[in-house]
Design a protein around this nucleic acid. Structure first.
Lengths: 340, 340
DNA sequence: CTGAAAGCGCTAACAA
DNA sequence: TTGTTAGCGCTTTCAG
């Protein structure tokens, strides 16, 4: 079965390529092509299951109607959620989505940007896997719109939409302190990542504000293993903590396992708070108090910014750099005990 | 800043398009192009941040090195997991991934297939959103490889890799029955979906095997709301059940909420089992016994089948229809009480 | 209202 | 060892 192109249809209908093309891409009215001709073409196209060859269109028009979606990993429910909202929205707007998962690896992200440039993508939605920003400069030079989500750069002119990680961490730490906690451990994820570092800073600043010198930050990865190991070690040290702040829900699950193994009760023996507000937090043996990010807003604003940039580029206009920080909220679930 | 093409580089280096092209796509050795020439080209390409235009390559070679990934929704952790494994593996094999989320809607899936054909994709990994299979026939006619995951068709020659949903449901229901349960409710998801229907059948067949006439299947969607509402209603009926089988973890979370609101204890007042074995099941107030699907195996086998098909197509060979069913396992977590 | 022809960027015969 | 040229499928002047 041969490939069906406008040529096939032109031959079949005894029309020129031009006319067929015009009917098939909706400019028939503009060129005042007769109804009968239009019907002929449309019928033939329908019978033959014709689809325009995007490669050819892309080459000719220098538009791909494709957007690159670059994320660390879909295994992380927060990112998967963002990806879900973003990809649906882009589809509705007529864009295809080319997905690349970087697995938190710089090299892969660099490669991904190259791949996407090869595909002539018209824009990129990026959740960075790295602090490194050099590979993005090429996109900026080529004037390809980029919007970062959740994680971002301060050293380079890339727009972003993110939660104010700092204030979320600050607030939840303050909540612990106000409940009387003084020995609070922070279980962090990957240190190369701005969202992590801002949260750590929020934690530390809150501690300092109340003159609590004993800040302790443990761990190095957004994984359940990391949460488990660090908590295990933490609970076996002579110096005890009264509260734990997990910087992600994956870390939290590991921590919970260790806490259970040590037969400690939450919150009676240990208070615990976390960061991603996954839906299941409500149903844990003790529901866990959490920072909550406005995923929907973040995703939708990012899409809007990207679309604006693409439109502006079409019109030859210039767009400003946009930096959007959204306030997280605190979901209180009583995994924190008041000491006094 | 103008577009960099092989022409730019040819002019800059005073070489022909052909030579530049050969160096840049790795056939330099084959044509015995001198080292010095190669270096010149590579250097120029590097300086100019050259990337090959995939649209042109695609058009010329009639190969896109792109695979369509069509799934109901990334918001479902099971699908997100599959998508994650699949997309990483495809990237490593040199394929780009075009992602379409169908939101369990037939129309979107039909559109998606058209879109992917437009992009000249070389294969499709599909988790169907519908029983309808007509739109896939076009792909089959065009000899485009398709592999279904998790859900599949019996009425059409499309290869698939899935868990044996029937046996998983049968076994976990039998486990309940052997523990003495006679009134077991099944909370189902979307009725258009084979995985759901096979699970329901597994449940019913197990009930019948033990002469339990009172099969009851409630609900109609893989959502937490559905789980909540149906459980709420279930618990308020005069006729009591002693066990609930949730056909997904989203449904489970809703059920747990309702159960908690009614102040029932698991498993003392009510036994509960579920289907997706999400990582957090271990940490719920009562850890919940679950069927577990071999996500990694499913995804990797599907990729292997797809790659085989693509290779075979390149070589002009024919490939057989493959139907792979993997056995699920049972993860026992003591959310089931033994009645006697 | 319809058509002819050029060209987007790349590769592969065919030549040299 | 390198170059010339045709053509992939489509859109868009320009020309009727």
């Amino acid at each position: 079965m041969k490939n069906v192109t406008i040529k096939t249809i032109a031959e079949l209908t005894n029309l020129s390529l031009t006319t067929v093309s015009r009917v098939l891409n909706g400019t028939a009215e503009k060129y005042r092509i007769s109804k009968s001709t239009q019907e002929m073409v449309l019928k033939a196209a329908g019978n033959l299951d014709y689809t325009p060859n995007q490669a050819a269109v892309n080459l000719r028009l220098k538009r791909s109607f494709s957007i690159g979606l670059v994320i660390p990993s879909l295994a992380n429910p927060f990112f998967a959620n963002v990806a879900s909202i973003v990809s649906k929205s882009l589809r509705e707007k007529g864009f295809s989505v080319i997905l690349v998962e970087c697995d938190e690896k710089v090299e892969v992200e660099v490669e991904a940007i190259g791949l996407l440039r090869s595909h002539n993508i018209e824009g990129v939605i990026l959740i960075p896997s790295t602090k490194e920003s050099n590979h993005l400069k090429i996109l900026l030079n080529q004037n390809i719109p980029v919007v970062c989500i959740d994680r971002y750069y301060e050293d380079i002119a890339v727009s972003y939409v993110a939660t104010d990680h700092y204030i979320g961490a600050f607030n939840i730490t303050e909540l612990l302190i106000k409940a009387g906690h003084k020995e609070i451990a922070c279980l962090q994820g990957c240190e190369n990542v701005i969202s992590n570092n801002l949260r750590v800073k929020g934690y530390k600043d809150a501690m300092h504000k109340y003159n609590l010198k004993n800040t302790q930050v443990w761990g190095n990865s957004f994984t359940t293993e990391n949460g488990y190991i660090e908590t295990k070690l933490l609970l076996q040290r002579s110096q005890k903590v009264s509260a734990i702040f997990a910087l992600s829900d994956t870390i939290l699950l590991g921590a919970l396992k260790a806490i259970e193994e040590e037969a400690l009760r939450i919150p009676e023996d240990l208070s615990v708070v976390t960061s991603d507000n996954s839906p299941y937090l409500d149903f844990l043996s003790t529901p866990i108090t959490s920072v909550s990010q406005p995923v929907n807003d973040i995703s939708n604003i990012a899409i809007k910014l990207l679309m604006d940039k693409i439109d502006a580029k079409q019109k030859g206009e210039q767009v400003e750099l946009e930096k959007v920080l959204l306030k997280p909220s605190l979901i209180n679930r009583n995994s924190v005990i008041t000491l006094h």
